[in-house]
Simulated scan of single mutants.
Amino acid sequence: MHHEKRTFEFYALAAFFALFVLFLYGPLSAILILSFQGPDGGLTFPLNGVSTHWFANLFERQAVGDFGGSFRRSFTLGLLVMATTVTVSLLAGLAFRRRFRGGTALFYLSIASLVVPSIIVSLGIGVLFSQLGLQPTWFTSAFGAHLTWTLPFGVLIMFAVFNRFSPVYEEAARDLGATSWQTFAHVVLPIILPSLIGVGLFGFTLSYDEFARTLLTAGTFNTLPLEIYGMTTNVTTPVLYALGTVTTLFSFLVILATLGIILGLARRRGRAAA
């Protein structure tokens, strides 16, 4: 059997990919291992025994840090941002299917925040709230700051989806007597639903992990990224690693659940087509 000879480009790409995986998962692996440090262990290797002590410590009252409260705030904020991003991105995608006066300018304005440094956006929103005499909070000013990050991505994704969307299906539905709402609900929405779920997941993860745009807009109470950052200068036990492990596993579970939903929808659509 003839085997094709590997080229230099293949090995170069393989080496680059190996380095990428190392830089991506190496630190996560170290945090995962150190989170199982023994009760008397420290923040560095070697392990002083193996235990789940620091995971249990997460649920105890801490001298520094508010794990539960910061997680609830980040989770709630992520859900709010996700719902808003999906809704606005869908409406924008539908609106831009037709040309209208000022559409090009509106498009560039909607994605302009992607090229503005995140800390400048955070500073600007914080200053604006102060000038208006309003107290910045995680569910008002931080919510708006996160939308300046998630909405452009959501809009761009929906533009790509509708750019590939054939109007033939809608025309067939209208020819059969369906109203505009019935056409959207029973034809358009089921086709684009996996993409909408992807937009929702993207919006949630961008918000859940966002640090810079939250720094000057969260007000008195921290979100989880701010809490973790604050703890790095105050916490001297592996409980910080345990928190990192739990939040990372939570993120992976969200991704797996979303992929399961998307694949389930795809299989159901395939059975319906058959």
Results as ranks from 00 to 15, higher is better:
M1H: 14
E4C: 13
F8P: 05
F8R: 06
E9K: 15
A12S: 10
A15V: 07
A18F: 11
A18S: 13
A18P: 10
F20W: 04
L22R: 14
L24I: 07
G26Y: 06
S29I: 08
S29M: 14
L34D: 09
S35Q: 01
F36V: 00
D40P: 02
G49L: 00
S51I: 00
W54E: 08
F55D: 01
L58V: 00
E60L: 01
V64Q: 06
G65T: 07
G69R: 05
S70N: 07
R72L: 13
R73I: 02
G78S: 05
L79W: 07
V81H: 08
V88R: 12
L91W: 13
F96N: 08
F96M: 15
R97K: 03
R99Q: 14
R99L: 13
R101G: 13
R101A: 15
A105K: 14
I111S: 02
V115K: 12
S118C: 12
V121W: 03
L123C: 11
F129W: 09
Q131H: 01
L132I: 04
L132G: 11
P136S: 05
T137P: 08
F139L: 07
G144C: 06
G144H: 02
L147C: 12
T148G: 06
W149H: 08
L151Y: 12
F153S: 09
I157T: 15
F162C: 10
E171T: 10
E171I: 08
A172S: 12
R174V: 00
W181A: 13
V187G: 11
I191W: 04
I192T: 07
T205V: 07
L206P: 00
S207C: 14
D209L: 01
T214V: 12
L215P: 05
G219E: 10
L224S: 00
P225C: 07
L226T: 09
E227F: 14
G230A: 10
G230R: 14
T233P: 15
T233F: 15
V239Q: 04
L240C: 09
L240Q: 05
L240P: 00
L243Q: 11
G244H: 02
G244P: 04
T245N: 06
T247D: 04
L253T: 08
L253M: 01
A257S: 06
I262M: 10
G264V: 07
A273T: 12
A274G: 03
